[in-house]
Write a protein that binds this DNA or RNA. Structure first.
Lengths: 129, 129
DNA sequence: ACTTGACTTCGAGCGTGCTCGAACTGGAAG
DNA sequence: CTTCCAGTTCGAGCACGCTCGAAGTCAAGT
């Protein structure tokens, strides 16, 4: 368990692959302040640490649940300001959780409409085909 | 139960309000072929029938479940071609249902991440707040 | 008769979230 | 040493789904 196995650092391409985003997007996220300035190596190339990757992963989940980039940026800013923002970050997540739950409820409703139509088509097909 | 109670027809504004879209969007949907050409009155104004409104309602559900406009157009085209496309329409809905279910599963997973973070924040707040 | 306000068509513009091309740099493999 | 590939920055461009402004029409209310 030496230092080299504990200190991983990935290029933008490797990081992109791990988190399922493109290199374009990773650079853009940084530019947009969704990620703090990523470390660079001696020749100016980005080096993503494990915690950078974990952060990016979290961002992908937030994004996938429909959180706007604007809110993700706000969250990133809070995170950069340390422990004094823990409450605010929790509040942000709780509010977002509520939106996700509402969205899921909406999808369940919409699913019923889909089921209804599928059934109606099935019946119509039997009748006329 | 006279004809006037059975034959409703709404202006674009009324229809928009009922289905929760704007008048802009309703006209645009028509232009994009998501809705067949809506009837006009003697002075060229749109008159939405009950079945137009039902159709629009269905479109709002498809839209809300994330169906792209392109696919909604394809569906509308199928519907305009009558009963011979019942099977295709059902297939389209079944495929879409699968996507919605997958999306819901994804959201459940993402929700776990949110819960986990909320909990972590709560613990961190207790510890340092 | 006049005003109001919702309607018409048309094409342009916008917000979001990337996505890409251009021009360049630097390390590694053959 | 050259070739190659992945990286850099910058600003422009794109796909999607609307959204709106302009200029005009028409019917109803005062």
């Amino acid at each position: 368990m030496d230092i080299s196995t504990r200190e991983m650092s990935l290029t933008v391409g490797e990081a992109a692959e791990r988190v399922g985003l493109t290199t374009y997007t990773l650079r853009w996220y940084e530019q947009e302040g969704l990620v703090g300035r990523v470390g660079r190596d001696s020749s100016g190339r980005r080096r993503y640490t494990e915690s950078d990757v974990n952060w990016l992963f979290l961002l992908t989940r937030l994004r996938r649940t429909g959180m706007p980039v604007r809110d993700m940026r706000r969250y990133a800013e809070l995170a950069r300001h340390g422990d004094s923002t823990l409450g605010a970050r929790r509040a942000l997540f709780e509010a977002h959780r509520a939106r996700v739950l509402a969205r899921m409820a909406e999808l369940s409703e919409d699913l019923k409409v889909l089921e209804y139509k599928i059934d109606a088509y099935r019946r119509a097909e039997e009748e006329s085909g």
